[in-house]
Amino acid sequence: MYFLFDNLYFPPVSEADEEGILAVGGDLSPERLKLAYKNGIFPWFNEGEPILWWAPDPRMVLFLDELIISKSMRNILNRKQFTVTFNTNFKEVISNCQKIQRIGQDGTWISDDIVESYCELNRQGIAKSVEVWQEGELVGGLYGVDLGHVFCGESMFSKVSNASKVAFISLVKHLEEKNYKLLDCQVYNPHLDSLGCREIDREEFMDILKSE
Rank of each mutant, 00 (worst) to 15 (best):
W133G: 02
L183M: 04
S211I: 09
I208Y: 06
F63Q: 09
S14W: 04
V166F: 06
F205Y: 14
Y180H: 05
L64I: 00
M1P: 12
F82M: 05
A127H: 05
E135V: 09
S170K: 05
P56V: 11
P56I: 12
F82T: 05
R198V: 09
G153Y: 06
E204S: 11
T83G: 12
L171Y: 12
P58A: 11
G136W: 15
E49G: 00
K165C: 08
H191S: 07
S72W: 07
K173T: 04
Q134T: 11
F42V: 01
N7A: 14
L171G: 08
K38G: 08
A163W: 00
M156D: 07
D65M: 06
P43E: 04
A167F: 02
G25V: 05
W109C: 01
V139Q: 07
R202Q: 01
R74W: 02
R198M: 10
N46C: 13
V61T: 06
G141M: 11
I21G: 11
Y188S: 03
L142V: 13
L121Q: 00
P30A: 05
G20W: 06
D106R: 14
R79Y: 01
E92F: 03
L147T: 07
T85G: 09
V115H: 11
A167Q: 01
P50L: 06
E19S: 14
Q105L: 12
K80I: 14
N46D: 15
I110N: 00
E176P: 00
S29V: 09
V150Y: 08
E203Q: 14
I200Y: 00
